[in-house]
Computed example of a mutant assay.
Amino acid sequence: MNLSELIILIKELFVAGGIVMPPLVLCVLLLWYGLGYRFWVMKTPKLMGVRDMLQYYQQHDDHPAKNIVAQAIKQGIALKKKGVRNLRRHLDAAFYAYEREIGKFSVLVRVVILISPLLGLLGTVIGMIETFDSLATMTLHSQSGGIAGGISQALFTTQMGLTVAIPGLLAHSILNRKQHQIEQDLAQVKDLLCHQTHSHHATQTKSHSQ
């Protein structure tokens, strides 16, 4: 398909969808931009458990971090080495940037998924109104397809709205599960680092008392 054929196809889609096609196309662009960004941020898989990753980066702190959890572990280890007071509060502040990053565009994607079928339904209602108005003046019978053709054209926008929403909903659900898993991993990193710090302080206190 060359460029001219693609332009003609897009024009036909806009004509078939009517007034709601521009916002539906905008929804498609926003939806897949948001999903693509979230996928890119969370795309690198975690190859080992959080405990193993923490132990690994404590022994090899010069190795690059390949995913968000690894980046958070390296930053947490750096804070622990500094000996900051109230490590939990510093970890919460440091990890907030990672939690915000993996949740970015989540609300936008959810809104687009919700409004796309409604836009499609609105286009169908508008198309049905135009169909029955044409039927009242008997102008629809002069067009190819008659009443069935007019109703088919009206239902096109509903089909488009569902075509946008259903794949987006599935991809959004998968990414949400991955986000939830990363959030759990980050919480586990905080717990492990704070537990190590408390254990280290307790050992030092016990040795000083002896």
Rank of each mutant, 00 (worst) to 15 (best):
V15E: 06
V15K: 13
V15W: 10
G17F: 01
V20Q: 03
M21Y: 13
M21W: 11
M21T: 05
P22I: 02
P22Q: 06
P22W: 06
P23C: 14
P23I: 11
P23G: 08
P23T: 11
L24N: 00
V25W: 04
L26K: 15
V28E: 07
V28Q: 10
L29C: 10
L29W: 14
L30C: 11
L30K: 13
L31E: 08
L31W: 06
L31V: 09
W32D: 12
W32Q: 07
L35M: 03
L35C: 01
L35W: 00
G36P: 12
G36M: 13
R38C: 12
R38D: 11
F39M: 07
F39V: 03
F39H: 09
W40H: 15
M42E: 14
K43F: 09
K43A: 13
T44E: 07
T44R: 05
T44A: 10
P45E: 15
L47Q: 13
L47E: 15
L47P: 07
G49W: 09
G49C: 10
R51D: 09
R51K: 14
R51C: 11
R51Y: 07
D52Q: 05
D52R: 06
M53C: 06
L54I: 01
Q55P: 07
Q55A: 10
Y56F: 08
Y56C: 04
Y57K: 03
Q58P: 12
Q58C: 07
H60S: 05
D61R: 04
D62T: 13
H63F: 14
P64G: 05
P64N: 04
A65L: 05
A65G: 03
N67C: 13
N67M: 12
V69M: 00
A70H: 06
A72D: 00
A72S: 00
I73H: 00
I73R: 01
K74E: 02
Q75G: 06
Q75E: 04
Q75H: 04
G76N: 12
I77N: 01
A78W: 14
L79R: 08
L79E: 13
L79T: 10
L79Y: 07
K80L: 06
K80R: 10
K81S: 01
K81D: 02
V84S: 05
V84H: 07
R85G: 07
R85W: 04
R85A: 09
L87W: 07
L87I: 03
